[in-house]
Design a protein around this nucleic acid. Sequence first.
DNA 1: ACAAAACTTGCCCAGCAGGCAAGTTTGCCG
DNA 2: CGGCAAACTTGCCTGCTGGGCAAGTTTTGT
Lengths: 193, 193
Amino acid sequence: MDETPGLRERKKAATRAALHEAALRLAIDQGVDGMTVEAIADAANVSRRTFSNYFSGKEEAIFHGDTVRLRRMLELVRAQPADEQPWTVLTRAALQLAEETYLGNEEWLSRRRLLRGHPSLAAHQVAAFAVVERELAAELAHRLGGDDVALRARVLAAIFLTTMRVAVQDSTEHPERPLLDVVGAALAAAAPA
Amino acid sequence: MDETPGLRERKKAATRAALHEAALRLAIDQGVDGMTVEAIADAANVSRRTFSNYFSGKEEAIFHGDTVRLRRMLELVRAQPADEQPWTVLTRAALQLAEETYLGNEEWLSRRRLLRGHPSLAAHQVAAFAVVERELAAELAHRLGGDDVALRARVLAAIFLTTMRVAVQDSTEHPERPLLDVVGAALAAAAPA
DNA sequence: ACAAAACTTGCCCAGCAGGCAAGTTTGCCG
DNA sequence: CGGCAAACTTGCCTGCTGGGCAAGTTTTGT
């Protein structure tokens, strides 16, 4: 694979990340409704119009982190052997991701906590998780046999993603419990027959 | 219980229903982006400002039907004996609701099909389903024993709702297969261990 | 009958998404 | 290296949107 995806791509990624960072920071200390898109763009040294080229709204910018992590999760799933049980594959990917996320960014959960409870955010987070649903389902379909593969793959993908979401949400509400623990318990409760 | 919930409440329900109807109809033949909130309000003989008193946006108006059905589902769950297995309770409620919905409104699926594929709608539908998640979790918590009741109840509620959503979405994409059939298969694939 | 509470409406405003076109940066190939 | 094409940024602009406010209307309880 290409080590450097080209200057253009690197710049885009940097801008996107800067906007995400700014959105998160401003949301935390001015409130989601209290901040304007213009403020986010300014904080990232970019025009308001450019913000719109990257995200379709402030909430999308806020949850860009989740989007990235979910794509990473897709990779982790794809990287696993084709002959494993699907739920095993998903569980491994989830636990590894939880570990990476937590190690790479210890303050992650605490920053999230500051955003908790805002009504419209929950809806957007749910949407962020749903975006990868079809891709994950396609990947799982390869790993399933029997009847109704398409439907069963989709159900499995949806269940898994929703479980991850609940685990993360629950984790922000119970800071004392380690993330890995919550993810593990949630996955155990969700495991299909 | 009160047979007539009062004139005021009846009028409100009628207005809400009229707005929902209008939103659905206009969305189908002008496209979701092609219609304005004002047009919906006009079609329901109500001011644009009043629309905002009922719904926070057009998508919410479009999915009001789903919201109503999900509340009905909560009732169906609550009405069942407390000593049943939670997943059995949910399955029964889902199948009964699918039947009611289909019988009461045969054109339901075909109307939905006309809206399929619009990107932003999917997100709002997911959100509509997530709204009742906490209420359903609270109801299920009563019916669970063991450790971690709160988390497990939440996971169960989320899994169930997401499965229903997938069943409905899949159904709009495969019109030839009976709704009950799809719901049944989806629930079977989702049943926890 | 009448007062309080709830609802509707018009008016208003700041914020927002996204089309368009001119200017700038990057990628690519001879 | 030169230079063209594609991609990206920016400013400008427009119509739509959510929601605060206050005046007018309808429903309710007594």
